[in-house]
């Protein structure tokens, strides 16, 4: 598993995870009202928090993904992305299990989404989660190595 620590492998991983997140947050940034509705559709957050989440979450995604791409705060930004992904996976899974006929609000904010779409998103998020985990863990060891030198 040595290649996991490879500098270029980690760079590519950061670009993939950061790039995907950056792409995914743009639509939400431009259509906050629709994103708020998507959150509402998940039916797990009290109404008073919906809009605040809809305002802040896309910017957390934006900041974390830009930082990850540029290599600033690699651990912090990958950690934030890991937390977001876990939240996304949980909410998607419960929506899938409850059979909600909703949009996941993942990439584009279209309102209708088939069950298979949701399943695909869950799988996608799991892959991203694995990627960000590797970045998180390996960024730590790299810092350690640098210090040892």
């Amino acid at each position: 598993m040595n290649f996991l620590s490879n500098k270029y492998f980690l760079l590519i991983l950061r670009l993939i995870v950061g790039g995907t997140f950056l792409y995914a947050c743009l639509d939400k940034l431009l259509n906050q009202e629709l994103f708020a509705k998507a959150i509402f559709n998940y039916k797990f957050l009290p109404d008073v928090f919906i809009n605040i989440f809809a305002i802040v979450i896309p910017y957390i995604e934006l900041t974390a993904s830009v930082f990850l791409i540029l290599g600033i705060f690699k651990r912090g930004s990958s950690f934030v992305i890991i937390v977001l992904l876990i939240v996304f996976i949980i909410s998607l899974t419960q929506a899938y299990a409850r059979g909600l006929d909703i949009s996941c609000g993942c990439f584009s904010l279209e309102t209708v989404s088939e069950k298979s779409d949701i399943l695909l998103r869950i799988i996608e998020d799991i892959f991203l989660l694995i990627g960000s985990f590797i970045i998180f863990i390996k960024s730590k060891t790299i810092i350690k190595q640098e210090r040892q030198q």
């Binding site: 906050q32 809009n51 809809a54 305002i55 896309p58 910017y59 705060f73």
Partner: peptide, 25 residues
């Protein structure tokens, strides 16, 4: 730091945005 930047950006942009949404709806 990441969260502070995001909260600041989010509320500022929403405040000035033509498509702004109310904080509580």
């Amino acid at each position: 730091i990441i969260i502070c930047i995001s909260v600041f950006l989010g509320f500022t942009v929403n405040f000035f945005s033509p498509n702004k949404i109310p904080l509580v709806q």
